[in-house]
Amino acid sequence: MHHAVIERWSQGHSFLHRRDARAKAAALLVLLTAIATAPGLPVAAGSVYFAILIFGFAAARVPVRGALARAAAVLPFSLAFAAIAAASGDPARAAILPGKSYLSALAVLLVVATTPLPKLLRGFEGIGVPRFLLMVGQFVYRYLFVIAGQAASMRLAASCRGGFGKSGSAHKTRFSAAAGALAVLFARSYGAAENIHRSMLSRGFEGHFHLLRNPRFGPADWTFLLSSVAVAVAVRGI
């Protein structure tokens, strides 16, 4: 599964992996903004951004080819729009849409592939995102590994009995079988949430999450942040 692969990449120990999540989050936002606001995004600037990102993946020892393939998730969408733009006589836009969206996806992927998601979410707390929201996100991600596993086994069980996803004669029955499966998954999820709540109370939870401190934002993090910002802005000017 996709998220499991990214999760594995994010467990590395390279220079990029070791940088503070806040530094990476801030650098990412600057880079994305630089790409998004570059009028037209000249081929030269685009290529330099691309080269920098590739270098980033290689330096972080994340499989470059795998990363390129995963970022390509945005391409079908972008290329279709590019085709429409080209057909309606706007070849410049036709080139820019896939270029910008692919570069942006690649940049996000570089940060996510070098930062475990919970750390990254906590990094966003430093930029003012409410902790409550980030904690919800953290639980969504944590239990995605559990609930998706249950959904997969239910789907397997269903396909052993003919499946609820395929068309067939008894299609109304299949529809309600799928609804029933989701309802069971829902009830299990709800039950799991109640057990988690009980286990929190059992360890003294009194209504507020106390977290361990974020690690210190060191000189290397400052250096990384400032130089990424400088590079992102400079390349945009090419």
């Binding site: 409550f132 904690m135 919800v136 996100g137 953290q138 639980f139 969504v140 991600y141 944590r142 239990y143 995605l144 559990v146 609930i147 998706a148 998954l185 829902f186 999820s189 709800y190 799991a192 949430a193 109640e194 988690i196 709540h197 929190m200 999450f209």
Partner: peptide, 10 residues
């Protein structure tokens, strides 16, 4: 928060 998160995962 766990309820919201787990239902999100659902």
């Amino acid at each position: 928060i766990p309820l919201l998160g787990v239902l999100g995962a659902f």
